[in-house]
Design a binder for these strands. Structure first.
Lengths: 212, 212
DNA sequence: TTGAGAATCACCAATTCAGGTGATTGTCGC
DNA sequence: GCGACAATCACCTGAATTGGTGATTCTCAA
């Protein structure tokens, strides 16, 4: 059974060459080529694709908005983004919207075919420059800066967790079955270890350094 | 000029076949093959590679620890991780440690050569299953849940930023050149919009939903 | 066994915060 | 111009928080 591929691309020439490329493959068939995503839903229902090739910059509904809609209405459809620029924000937005792959338009035809296949198989083909950017973004997001090791006791960690949830001393005391004065003492110790002097500072530090 | 590749891999058979594979390429040369990372620094100095193929599971010093050291001591060396399992935590750790690529060991030889080349060119080759996982992790990290749109005024956002930094009303008042009572009023409005009732809840929400 | 730390509780003073009421100014769109 | 709203300020009360001092119990390692 051939893979059904649909194309959303406003550049007529590029769109037509993609259609031709897809149809030149034995086990692929292009079931729709559209210049914009303004009639997205009916277009999708009619074309009923397995894989969508989506240009990120289109007049009217943007490629990213289209991805959001497609992933909502047709969650089984895989989406391969295409763009001329490997722009950080766009990549970020497309990934979060649910795109599976991200290829530059200048990718050679054979690689593009491979990417469509890989997308259909549940992979995540990415142009090298995009893959690098994704890893960079990932690192900068993930690592934060947990420079200093903060050695809270189990009890202190538990109380800090409750403070982060916005609980007052009284509420913490009730939750832990201890008195307010005890909570106050623990909090004091937490402040000393975190080098802070208020609940909100402690909460901010706890979240940013993933202490809880 | 041939690409200098070094291999760290405890399985003798696999190590030797990798060496052979690398040396069978015209523009690659294997400058060192080691069964573990226990004498990492001298090994690296002696082999002086452009690209390191690093097994993630090795006796003694783990592949990930080795990546950290290499990236610190030899920042220009690119590292291609190799593993039998596409384990979330390992991938995560390797990326954060600074690995450029991540390939399963069962990758066919030709693809492995391509991956080495791509790594050397500053790319980030990833086995399909790994790429998918990276995108998934990225999504779950990035998106958080910024469901409801919170429309803070510029002034409110500024004050919230200061609260997140741990400032008291008095300090905020001083920073913004306004009175404490005005700060108090702004804070009240912020609480209403955020549906919270304390400074720490507001701070937590602000950070988690990236309002500041 | 002796000491360090974790967890618990208490009392206290000064400060800060939350929320209620009320008011003035300036800007923006209709 | 008028209404809506942001930004500003004031006064007030009760509650919560911060930080100081001091104490008991228990456990775990030196």
């Amino acid at each position: 059974m051939a893979i059904r591929v649909s194309v959303f691309e406003d550049n007529k020439k590029l769109r037509e060459s993609l259609v031709q490329l897809i149809n030149s493959e034995e086990d692929m068939i292009c079931t729709g080529a559209f210049a914009d995503a303004n009639r997205l839903i009916p277009n999708m229902q009619q074309a009923n694709p397995d894989v969508v090739m989506m240009d990120i910059n289109m007049p009217g509904v943007s490629g990213i908005e289209a991805v959001v809609v497609i992933k909502k209405k047709f969650p089984n459809v895989q989406i391969l983004m295409q763009t001329v620029f490997d722009d950080d924000d766009k990549i970020f937005a497309a990934i979060c919207a649910g795109a599976s792959g991200y290829m530059l338009k200048k990718t050679p035809p054979q690689k593009m075919i491979e990417a469509i296949l890989e997308t259909h198989l549940g992979g995540a083909p990415m142009t090298a420059s995009v893959a690098v950017k994704v890893l960079q973004m990932f690192r900068s997001q993930a690592s934060a800066q947990q420079s200093e090791f903060i050695d809270l006791s189990e009890r202190e960690r538990e109380i800090l967790r409750l403070l982060v949830k916005g609980k007052s001393y009284k509420a913490v005391a009730a939750d832990c079955f201890i008195s307010i004065d005890t909570v106050s003492t623990h909090v004091r110790h937490i402040y000393e270890k975190l080098h802070v002097h208020s609940k909100s500072e402690a909460v901010a530090k706890a979240i940013l350094q993933k202490l809880v």
